[in-house]
Design a protein around this nucleic acid. Sequence first.
DNA 1: TATCGTTATGTGTTATAACACTTTACCGGC
DNA 2: GCCGGTAAAGTGTTATAACACATAACGATA
Lengths: 231, 231
Amino acid sequence: MAVHRLDLIERSETLTAQVAEKLREALIGGVFAPGDKITIRAVAKSLGVSLTPAREALSILAAEGALEFGANRTLMVPPLSIDRLAEITRIRIALEGLAAERAARLLEDREIARIAAANEAMIRATEAEDFKGAILRNHEFHFGIYRGSRMPTLIKMIEGLWLRTGAYVNLIYPAFGLARKGIENHERAARALKARDAEGLRAAIEFDIRYSAEHLETELRAKQPEALKLA
Amino acid sequence: MAVHRLDLIERSETLTAQVAEKLREALIGGVFAPGDKITIRAVAKSLGVSLTPAREALSILAAEGALEFGANRTLMVPPLSIDRLAEITRIRIALEGLAAERAARLLEDREIARIAAANEAMIRATEAEDFKGAILRNHEFHFGIYRGSRMPTLIKMIEGLWLRTGAYVNLIYPAFGLARKGIENHERAARALKARDAEGLRAAIEFDIRYSAEHLETELRAKQPEALKLA
DNA sequence: TATCGTTATGTGTTATAACACTTTACCGGC
DNA sequence: GCCGGTAAAGTGTTATAACACATAACGATA
Protein backbone atom coordinates (compact mmCIF):
# COMPACT_ATOMS: atom_id res chain seq x y z
CA MET A 1 0.00 0.00 0.00
CA ALA A 2 1.73 3.06 -1.29
CA VAL A 3 -0.56 5.16 0.84
CA HIS A 4 1.86 4.93 3.69
CA ARG A 5 3.97 7.74 2.39
CA LEU A 6 1.18 10.24 2.70
CA ASP A 7 1.46 12.84 5.40
CA LEU A 8 -1.01 12.72 8.21
CA ILE A 9 -3.82 15.17 7.76
CA GLU A 10 -3.42 18.17 9.92
CA ARG A 11 -6.04 18.38 12.57
CA SER A 12 -6.71 21.85 13.80
CA GLU A 13 -6.28 22.34 17.49
CA THR A 14 -9.26 22.72 19.74
CA LEU A 15 -10.57 26.16 20.46
CA THR A 16 -9.57 25.65 24.06
CA ALA A 17 -5.95 25.06 23.10
CA GLN A 18 -5.95 28.04 20.76
CA VAL A 19 -7.38 30.31 23.42
CA ALA A 20 -4.81 29.08 25.94
CA GLU A 21 -2.01 29.76 23.46
CA LYS A 22 -3.28 33.25 22.71
CA LEU A 23 -3.41 33.98 26.40
CA ARG A 24 0.12 32.72 26.90
CA GLU A 25 1.34 34.96 24.11
CA ALA A 26 -0.49 37.90 25.60
CA LEU A 27 1.03 37.20 29.00
CA ILE A 28 4.63 37.09 27.83
CA GLY A 29 3.93 39.91 25.42
CA GLY A 30 3.03 42.23 28.26
CA VAL A 31 -0.53 42.80 27.09
CA PHE A 32 -1.82 42.46 30.62
CA ALA A 33 -0.63 44.36 33.62
CA PRO A 34 0.10 42.42 36.80
CA GLY A 35 -2.98 42.36 38.98
CA ASP A 36 -5.38 42.73 36.07
CA LYS A 37 -8.61 40.82 36.51
CA ILE A 38 -9.37 38.51 33.64
CA THR A 39 -12.98 37.52 33.09
CA ILE A 40 -14.24 34.57 31.15
CA ARG A 41 -16.70 36.61 29.16
CA ALA A 42 -14.12 39.21 28.20
CA VAL A 43 -11.81 36.53 26.86
CA ALA A 44 -14.67 34.77 25.08
CA LYS A 45 -15.89 37.96 23.49
CA SER A 46 -12.53 39.30 22.41
CA LEU A 47 -11.57 36.01 20.79
CA GLY A 48 -14.99 35.26 19.38
CA VAL A 49 -15.63 31.97 21.15
CA SER A 50 -18.24 30.83 23.61
CA LEU A 51 -17.77 30.67 27.35
CA THR A 52 -16.86 27.00 27.43
CA PRO A 53 -13.46 27.06 25.70
CA ALA A 54 -12.61 30.41 27.25
CA ARG A 55 -13.31 29.15 30.71
CA GLU A 56 -11.41 25.94 30.17
CA ALA A 57 -8.38 27.73 28.77
CA LEU A 58 -8.31 30.05 31.77
CA SER A 59 -8.52 27.16 34.16
CA ILE A 60 -5.61 25.47 32.38
CA LEU A 61 -3.52 28.62 32.66
CA ALA A 62 -4.39 28.74 36.33
CA ALA A 63 -3.32 25.12 36.79
CA GLU A 64 -0.03 25.99 35.13
CA GLY A 65 0.45 28.85 37.53
CA ALA A 66 0.36 31.50 34.84
CA LEU A 67 -2.82 32.91 36.30
CA GLU A 68 -4.05 32.97 39.86
CA PHE A 69 -7.35 33.03 41.67
CA GLY A 70 -8.21 36.26 43.37
CA ALA A 71 -11.18 37.03 45.56
CA ASN A 72 -14.43 35.29 44.68
CA ARG A 73 -12.80 32.96 42.21
CA THR A 74 -11.94 35.71 39.81
CA LEU A 75 -8.80 35.13 37.82
CA MET A 76 -5.98 37.62 37.64
CA VAL A 77 -2.48 37.85 36.29
CA PRO A 78 -0.36 37.32 39.39
CA PRO A 79 1.69 40.27 40.59
CA LEU A 80 5.32 39.45 41.18
CA SER A 81 6.37 40.19 44.72
CA ILE A 82 10.01 40.31 45.72
CA ASP A 83 9.55 37.13 47.72
CA ARG A 84 7.95 35.33 44.84
CA LEU A 85 10.67 36.45 42.46
CA ALA A 86 13.25 35.10 44.88
CA GLU A 87 11.45 31.78 45.05
CA ILE A 88 11.08 31.45 41.31
CA THR A 89 14.72 32.35 40.84
CA ARG A 90 15.84 29.61 43.21
CA ILE A 91 13.66 27.08 41.40
CA ARG A 92 14.88 28.26 38.02
CA ILE A 93 18.49 27.83 39.07
CA ALA A 94 17.81 24.28 40.21
CA LEU A 95 15.81 23.31 37.14
CA GLU A 96 17.54 25.17 34.36
CA GLY A 97 20.91 24.27 35.86
CA LEU A 98 19.93 20.62 35.69
CA ALA A 99 18.70 20.95 32.12
CA ALA A 100 21.86 22.75 31.04
CA GLU A 101 24.14 20.20 32.60
CA ARG A 102 22.37 17.32 30.89
CA ALA A 103 22.20 19.21 27.62
CA ALA A 104 25.95 19.77 27.49
CA ARG A 105 26.37 16.01 27.38
CA LEU A 106 23.64 15.23 24.88
CA LEU A 107 23.41 18.07 22.37
CA GLU A 108 24.49 17.35 18.82
CA ASP A 109 26.80 19.63 16.88
CA ARG A 110 24.05 20.78 14.59
CA GLU A 111 21.93 21.87 17.52
CA ILE A 112 24.84 23.65 19.15
CA ALA A 113 25.38 25.64 15.99
CA ARG A 114 21.75 26.67 15.94
CA ILE A 115 21.93 27.78 19.56
CA ALA A 116 25.03 29.86 18.88
CA ALA A 117 23.24 31.44 15.95
CA ALA A 118 20.29 32.36 18.17
CA ASN A 119 22.69 33.99 20.58
CA GLU A 120 24.33 36.07 17.86
CA ALA A 121 20.93 37.06 16.52
CA MET A 122 19.97 38.17 19.99
CA ILE A 123 23.04 40.33 20.34
CA ARG A 124 22.38 41.93 16.97
CA ALA A 125 18.74 42.54 17.88
CA THR A 126 19.78 44.10 21.16
CA GLU A 127 22.24 46.41 19.44
CA ALA A 128 19.56 47.40 16.97
CA GLU A 129 17.29 48.08 19.94
CA ASP A 130 14.79 45.56 18.60
CA PHE A 131 13.83 44.38 22.05
CA LYS A 132 10.88 42.26 21.03
CA GLY A 133 13.19 40.34 18.74
CA ALA A 134 15.87 40.10 21.38
CA ILE A 135 13.43 38.57 23.86
CA LEU A 136 12.43 35.99 21.26
CA ARG A 137 16.05 35.13 20.50
CA ASN A 138 16.85 34.88 24.17
CA HIS A 139 14.02 32.39 24.52
CA GLU A 140 15.35 30.41 21.56
CA PHE A 141 18.83 30.38 23.02
CA HIS A 142 17.80 29.14 26.43
CA PHE A 143 15.26 26.57 25.31
CA GLY A 144 17.51 25.40 22.52
CA ILE A 145 19.87 24.38 25.28
CA TYR A 146 17.19 22.95 27.54
CA ARG A 147 15.69 20.84 24.79
CA GLY A 148 19.07 19.18 24.57
CA SER A 149 18.47 17.66 27.98
CA ARG A 150 15.94 15.31 26.39
CA MET A 151 13.78 15.78 29.45
CA PRO A 152 10.32 16.82 28.24
CA THR A 153 8.74 17.04 31.66
CA LEU A 154 11.52 19.28 32.89
CA ILE A 155 11.25 21.54 29.87
CA LYS A 156 7.52 21.95 30.39
CA MET A 157 8.10 22.93 33.99
CA ILE A 158 10.69 25.51 33.00
CA GLU A 159 8.30 26.97 30.44
CA GLY A 160 5.75 27.38 33.20
CA LEU A 161 8.25 29.32 35.26
CA TRP A 162 9.15 31.63 32.40
CA LEU A 163 5.47 32.38 31.94
CA ARG A 164 5.28 33.78 35.44
CA THR A 165 7.93 36.40 34.91
CA GLY A 166 7.24 36.96 31.22
CA ALA A 167 5.18 40.09 31.64
CA TYR A 168 7.89 41.71 33.73
CA VAL A 169 10.82 40.77 31.54
CA ASN A 170 9.09 42.58 28.73
CA LEU A 171 8.76 45.55 31.02
CA ILE A 172 12.37 45.87 32.05
CA TYR A 173 14.17 44.52 29.05
CA PRO A 174 15.72 47.63 27.56
CA ALA A 175 17.86 48.34 30.60
CA PHE A 176 18.85 44.75 31.02
CA GLY A 177 19.37 43.90 27.39
CA LEU A 178 21.85 46.67 26.86
CA ALA A 179 23.99 45.62 29.77
CA ARG A 180 27.27 44.04 28.82
CA LYS A 181 27.13 41.51 31.59
CA GLY A 182 24.13 39.70 30.15
CA ILE A 183 25.86 39.21 26.84
CA GLU A 184 28.97 38.07 28.64
CA ASN A 185 27.00 35.34 30.37
CA HIS A 186 25.59 34.14 27.09
CA GLU A 187 29.00 34.10 25.47
CA ARG A 188 30.35 32.15 28.38
CA ALA A 189 27.52 29.65 28.01
CA ALA A 190 28.13 29.33 24.29
CA ARG A 191 31.82 28.63 24.87
CA ALA A 192 31.09 26.01 27.52
CA LEU A 193 28.57 24.43 25.19
CA LYS A 194 31.06 24.18 22.36
CA ALA A 195 33.58 22.60 24.74
CA ARG A 196 30.86 20.33 26.12
CA ASP A 197 31.79 21.54 29.57
CA ALA A 198 28.72 20.52 31.60
CA GLU A 199 29.76 22.23 34.82
CA GLY A 200 30.78 25.37 32.99
CA LEU A 201 27.50 25.55 31.12
CA ARG A 202 25.53 25.06 34.30
CA ALA A 203 27.49 27.82 36.00
CA ALA A 204 27.01 30.20 33.07
CA ILE A 205 23.26 29.59 32.96
CA GLU A 206 23.00 30.03 36.71
CA PHE A 207 24.85 33.32 36.46
CA ASP A 208 22.56 34.45 33.70
CA ILE A 209 19.46 33.64 35.75
CA ARG A 210 20.81 35.32 38.85
CA TYR A 211 21.89 38.35 36.90
CA SER A 212 18.54 38.92 35.20
CA ALA A 213 16.74 38.27 38.49
CA GLU A 214 18.81 40.94 40.20
CA HIS A 215 17.97 43.44 37.51
CA LEU A 216 14.32 42.56 37.75
CA GLU A 217 14.40 42.95 41.50
CA THR A 218 15.92 46.40 41.50
CA GLU A 219 13.42 47.38 38.84
CA LEU A 220 10.61 46.00 40.97
CA ARG A 221 11.77 47.90 44.02
CA ALA A 222 12.00 51.10 42.04
CA LYS A 223 8.82 50.98 40.02
CA GLN A 224 6.40 49.43 42.44
CA PRO A 225 7.43 49.23 46.04
CA GLU A 226 3.93 47.97 46.88
CA ALA A 227 4.94 44.69 45.24
CA LEU A 228 6.40 43.75 48.59
CA LYS A 229 2.97 43.39 50.06
CA LEU A 230 1.02 41.98 47.16
CA ALA A 231 0.46 38.31 46.38
CA MET B 1 -21.27 46.60 65.59
CA ALA B 2 -21.02 43.36 67.49
CA VAL B 3 -21.40 41.45 64.24
CA HIS B 4 -17.68 41.64 63.67
CA ARG B 5 -16.97 38.72 65.91
CA LEU B 6 -18.77 36.26 63.65
CA ASP B 7 -16.72 33.70 61.79
CA LEU B 8 -16.62 33.87 58.04
CA ILE B 9 -19.11 31.53 56.43
CA GLU B 10 -17.55 28.54 54.84
CA ARG B 11 -17.92 28.42 51.14
CA SER B 12 -18.06 24.99 49.57
CA GLU B 13 -15.63 24.30 46.78
CA THR B 14 -16.76 24.16 43.19
CA LEU B 15 -17.76 20.85 41.70
CA THR B 16 -14.80 21.12 39.37
CA ALA B 17 -12.38 21.38 42.29
CA GLN B 18 -14.06 18.49 44.08
CA VAL B 19 -13.90 16.29 41.01
CA ALA B 20 -10.24 17.16 40.52
CA GLU B 21 -9.49 16.27 44.13
CA LYS B 22 -11.35 12.95 43.89
CA LEU B 23 -9.35 12.12 40.79
CA ARG B 24 -6.08 12.97 42.49
CA GLU B 25 -6.97 10.71 45.38
CA ALA B 26 -7.88 7.92 42.99
CA LEU B 27 -4.61 8.34 41.16
CA ILE B 28 -2.40 8.10 44.21
CA GLY B 29 -4.67 5.44 45.65
CA GLY B 30 -3.98 3.15 42.74
CA VAL B 31 -7.60 3.02 41.58
CA PHE B 32 -6.53 3.39 37.98
CA ALA B 33 -4.03 1.24 36.18
CA PRO B 34 -1.37 2.98 34.10
CA GLY B 35 -2.54 3.30 30.53
CA ASP B 36 -6.22 3.30 31.47
CA LYS B 37 -8.34 5.52 29.28
CA ILE B 38 -10.39 8.00 31.25
CA THR B 39 -13.51 9.37 29.62
CA ILE B 40 -15.33 12.52 30.57
CA ARG B 41 -18.68 10.80 30.68
CA ALA B 42 -17.45 7.98 32.88
CA VAL B 43 -16.09 10.47 35.42
CA ALA B 44 -19.24 12.57 35.25
CA LYS B 45 -21.49 9.57 35.70
CA SER B 46 -19.56 7.92 38.49
CA LEU B 47 -19.38 11.15 40.48
CA GLY B 48 -22.88 12.30 39.66
CA VAL B 49 -22.02 15.58 37.97
CA SER B 50 -22.55 16.89 34.48
CA LEU B 51 -19.97 16.88 31.72
CA THR B 52 -18.82 20.43 32.33
CA PRO B 53 -17.10 20.09 35.71
CA ALA B 54 -15.87 16.60 34.84
CA ARG B 55 -14.27 17.83 31.67
CA GLU B 56 -12.73 20.83 33.34
CA ALA B 57 -11.29 18.79 36.17
CA LEU B 58 -9.73 16.38 33.70
CA SER B 59 -8.20 19.20 31.74
CA ILE B 60 -6.71 20.61 34.94
CA LEU B 61 -5.21 17.25 35.84
CA ALA B 62 -3.78 17.10 32.34
CA ALA B 63 -2.26 20.56 32.73
CA GLU B 64 -0.69 19.41 35.96
CA GLY B 65 0.81 16.42 34.20
CA ALA B 66 -1.13 13.89 36.23
CA LEU B 67 -2.99 12.77 33.11
CA GLU B 68 -1.90 12.73 29.52
CA PHE B 69 -3.49 12.97 26.13
CA GLY B 70 -3.52 9.79 24.13
CA ALA B 71 -4.73 9.26 20.57
CA ASN B 72 -7.68 11.37 19.45
CA ARG B 73 -7.54 13.59 22.49
CA THR B 74 -8.54 10.85 24.84
CA LEU B 75 -7.13 11.16 28.31
CA MET B 76 -5.23 8.39 30.02
CA VAL B 77 -3.24 7.85 33.16
CA PRO B 78 0.33 8.02 31.90
CA PRO B 79 2.36 4.83 32.02
CA LEU B 80 5.71 5.20 33.71
CA SER B 81 8.54 4.21 31.41
CA ILE B 82 12.04 3.66 32.73
CA ASP B 83 13.17 6.80 30.96
CA ARG B 84 10.41 8.86 32.43
CA LEU B 85 11.06 7.54 35.90
CA ALA B 86 14.71 8.51 35.50
CA GLU B 87 13.73 12.00 34.43
CA ILE B 88 11.27 12.49 37.25
CA THR B 89 13.82 11.22 39.73
CA ARG B 90 16.39 13.75 38.58
CA ILE B 91 13.87 16.56 38.85
CA ARG B 92 12.72 15.38 42.25
CA ILE B 93 16.29 15.37 43.55
CA ALA B 94 16.79 18.92 42.34
CA LEU B 95 13.50 20.22 43.69
CA GLU B 96 13.05 18.28 46.89
CA GLY B 97 16.73 18.75 47.68
CA LEU B 98 16.25 22.50 47.38
CA ALA B 99 13.13 22.42 49.54
CA ALA B 100 14.83 20.32 52.21
CA GLU B 101 17.86 22.57 52.37
CA ARG B 102 15.74 25.68 52.81
CA ALA B 103 13.48 23.95 55.29
CA ALA B 104 16.35 22.98 57.57
CA ARG B 105 17.05 26.67 58.04
CA LEU B 106 13.47 27.83 58.50
CA LEU B 107 11.50 25.13 60.29
CA GLU B 108 10.37 25.85 63.82
CA ASP B 109 10.84 23.41 66.67
CA ARG B 110 7.15 22.63 66.87
CA GLU B 111 7.05 21.67 63.20
CA ILE B 112 10.15 19.53 63.52
CA ALA B 113 8.52 17.60 66.34
CA ARG B 114 5.45 16.98 64.21
CA ILE B 115 7.60 15.73 61.35
CA ALA B 116 9.47 13.37 63.62
CA ALA B 117 6.13 12.07 64.90
CA ALA B 118 4.97 11.40 61.34
CA ASN B 119 8.14 9.44 60.75
CA GLU B 120 7.65 7.30 63.81
CA ALA B 121 4.02 6.71 62.89
CA MET B 122 5.15 5.59 59.48
CA ILE B 123 7.61 3.11 60.93
CA ARG B 124 4.92 1.70 63.19
CA ALA B 125 2.44 1.45 60.31
CA THR B 126 5.04 -0.32 58.20
CA GLU B 127 5.77 -2.82 60.97
CA ALA B 128 2.05 -3.44 61.36
CA GLU B 129 1.89 -3.98 57.59
CA ASP B 130 -0.59 -1.13 57.30
CA PHE B 131 0.77 0.01 53.98
CA LYS B 132 -1.97 2.49 53.16
CA GLY B 133 -1.24 4.20 56.46
CA ALA B 134 2.48 4.07 55.88
CA ILE B 135 2.14 5.77 52.50
CA LEU B 136 0.09 8.53 54.11
CA ARG B 137 2.64 9.02 56.88
CA ASN B 138 5.46 9.06 54.39
CA HIS B 139 3.67 11.84 52.53
CA GLU B 140 3.22 13.77 55.77
CA PHE B 141 6.88 13.37 56.63
CA HIS B 142 8.17 14.59 53.30
CA PHE B 143 5.75 17.46 52.82
CA GLY B 144 6.05 18.46 56.44
CA ILE B 145 9.67 19.13 55.63
CA TYR B 146 9.00 20.77 52.28
CA ARG B 147 6.41 23.12 53.71
CA GLY B 148 9.19 24.40 55.91
CA SER B 149 10.88 25.86 52.87
CA ARG B 150 8.16 28.54 52.75
CA MET B 151 8.17 28.19 48.98
CA PRO B 152 4.57 27.58 47.90
CA THR B 153 5.28 27.41 44.19
CA LEU B 154 7.99 24.85 44.75
CA ILE B 155 5.75 22.74 46.95
CA LYS B 156 3.03 22.70 44.33
CA MET B 157 5.50 21.55 41.73
CA ILE B 158 6.72 18.74 43.96
CA GLU B 159 3.15 17.64 44.58
CA GLY B 160 2.68 17.41 40.84
CA LEU B 161 5.68 15.13 40.55
CA TRP B 162 4.47 12.84 43.33
CA LEU B 163 1.17 12.52 41.51
CA ARG B 164 2.91 11.02 38.52
CA THR B 165 4.44 8.16 40.41
CA GLY B 166 1.67 7.79 42.98
CA ALA B 167 -0.09 4.90 41.32
CA TYR B 168 3.14 2.93 41.17
CA VAL B 169 4.32 3.61 44.68
CA ASN B 170 1.08 2.09 45.88
CA LEU B 171 1.80 -0.90 43.71
CA ILE B 172 5.28 -1.65 45.00
CA TYR B 173 5.13 -0.39 48.51
CA PRO B 174 5.18 -3.61 50.54
CA ALA B 175 8.61 -4.65 49.30
CA PHE B 176 10.03 -1.18 49.67
CA GLY B 177 8.40 -0.31 52.95
CA LEU B 178 9.79 -3.30 54.71
CA ALA B 179 13.32 -2.58 53.64
CA ARG B 180 15.56 -1.34 56.40
CA LYS B 181 17.36 1.10 54.17
CA GLY B 182 14.29 3.25 53.64
CA ILE B 183 13.79 3.69 57.34
CA GLU B 184 17.45 4.42 57.75
CA ASN B 185 17.19 7.30 55.30
CA HIS B 186 14.27 8.76 57.17
CA GLU B 187 16.07 8.48 60.50
CA ARG B 188 19.05 10.18 59.00
CA ALA B 189 16.85 12.96 57.71
CA ALA B 190 15.19 13.36 61.10
CA ARG B 191 18.57 13.64 62.83
CA ALA B 192 19.81 16.22 60.34
CA LEU B 193 16.61 18.15 60.81
CA LYS B 194 16.97 18.23 64.55
CA ALA B 195 20.56 19.42 64.18
CA ARG B 196 19.44 21.93 61.54
CA ASP B 197 22.08 20.52 59.26
CA ALA B 198 20.92 21.78 55.86
CA GLU B 199 23.45 19.87 53.79
CA GLY B 200 22.84 16.69 55.76
CA LEU B 201 19.09 16.94 55.33
CA ARG B 202 19.44 17.51 51.62
CA ALA B 203 21.70 14.51 51.30
CA ALA B 204 19.34 12.30 53.30
CA ILE B 205 16.34 13.31 51.21
CA GLU B 206 18.27 12.79 48.02
CA PHE B 207 19.26 9.31 49.20
CA ASP B 208 15.66 8.53 50.03
CA ILE B 209 14.48 9.60 46.59
CA ARG B 210 17.21 7.68 44.82
CA TYR B 211 16.59 4.62 46.91
CA SER B 212 12.86 4.47 46.30
CA ALA B 213 13.40 5.19 42.61
CA GLU B 214 15.77 2.27 42.34
CA HIS B 215 13.25 -0.03 43.94
CA LEU B 216 10.56 1.24 41.64
CA GLU B 217 12.79 0.71 38.63
CA THR B 218 13.63 -2.91 39.40
CA GLU B 219 9.95 -3.51 40.03
CA LEU B 220 9.08 -1.89 36.72
CA ARG B 221 11.61 -4.00 34.86
CA ALA B 222 10.29 -7.15 36.46
CA LYS B 223 6.56 -6.60 36.22
CA GLN B 224 6.21 -4.85 32.91
CA PRO B 225 9.16 -4.89 30.59
CA GLU B 226 6.98 -3.30 27.93
CA ALA B 227 7.17 -0.09 29.96
CA LEU B 228 10.40 0.56 28.13
CA LYS B 229 8.53 1.25 24.95
CA LEU B 230 5.44 2.97 26.23
CA ALA B 231 4.94 6.69 26.66
C1' DT C 1 -25.40 65.31 52.63
C1' DA C 2 -24.71 60.70 54.27
C1' DT C 3 -26.52 56.14 54.75
C1' DC C 4 -28.99 52.21 53.69
C1' DG C 5 -31.98 49.30 51.05
C1' DT C 6 -33.15 48.15 46.26
C1' DT C 7 -32.44 47.23 41.60
C1' DA C 8 -29.60 46.27 37.67
C1' DT C 9 -25.60 44.53 35.82
C1' DG C 10 -21.65 41.58 35.77
C1' DT C 11 -19.52 37.10 36.71
C1' DG C 12 -18.51 32.36 37.83
C1' DT C 13 -20.78 27.84 37.84
C1' DT C 14 -23.26 24.06 36.08
C1' DA C 15 -26.39 21.43 33.13
C1' DT C 16 -28.00 20.31 28.71
C1' DA C 17 -28.24 19.87 23.77
C1' DA C 18 -26.20 19.56 19.28
C1' DC C 19 -22.39 18.43 16.37
C1' DA C 20 -18.41 15.89 14.35
C1' DC C 21 -15.67 12.21 14.66
C1' DT C 22 -14.14 7.56 16.18
C1' DT C 23 -14.77 2.97 17.54
C1' DT C 24 -17.39 -1.08 17.85
C1' DA C 25 -20.89 -4.29 16.38
C1' DC C 26 -23.15 -6.38 12.95
C1' DC C 27 -24.31 -8.47 8.64
C1' DG C 28 -24.39 -9.66 3.83
C1' DG C 29 -21.46 -11.09 -0.08
C1' DC C 30 -17.46 -13.44 -1.85
C1' DG D 1 -14.52 -18.33 7.05
C1' DC D 2 -13.01 -13.79 5.79
C1' DC D 3 -13.61 -9.20 4.04
C1' DG D 4 -16.01 -4.82 3.39
C1' DG D 5 -19.31 -1.74 4.35
C1' DT D 6 -23.06 0.08 7.11
C1' DA D 7 -25.41 1.03 11.34
C1' DA D 8 -25.08 1.93 16.22
C1' DA D 9 -22.99 3.43 20.26
C1' DG D 10 -19.39 6.10 22.35
C1' DT D 11 -16.61 10.29 22.87
C1' DG D 12 -14.66 14.89 22.70
C1' DT D 13 -16.01 19.63 21.51
C1' DT D 14 -18.64 23.69 21.64
C1' DA D 15 -22.59 26.71 22.31
C1' DT D 16 -26.35 28.16 25.01
C1' DA D 17 -29.36 28.75 28.89
C1' DA D 18 -30.30 28.99 33.73
C1' DC D 19 -28.78 29.76 38.28
C1' DA D 20 -26.42 31.83 42.39
C1' DC D 21 -23.70 35.23 43.92
C1' DA D 22 -21.09 39.67 43.89
C1' DT D 23 -20.64 44.32 42.61
C1' DA D 24 -22.15 48.78 41.09
C1' DA D 25 -25.55 52.18 40.32
C1' DC D 26 -29.45 54.32 41.99
C1' DG D 27 -32.66 56.56 44.79
C1' DA D 28 -35.26 57.33 48.99
C1' DT D 29 -35.08 58.45 53.74
C1' DA D 30 -33.16 60.48 57.83
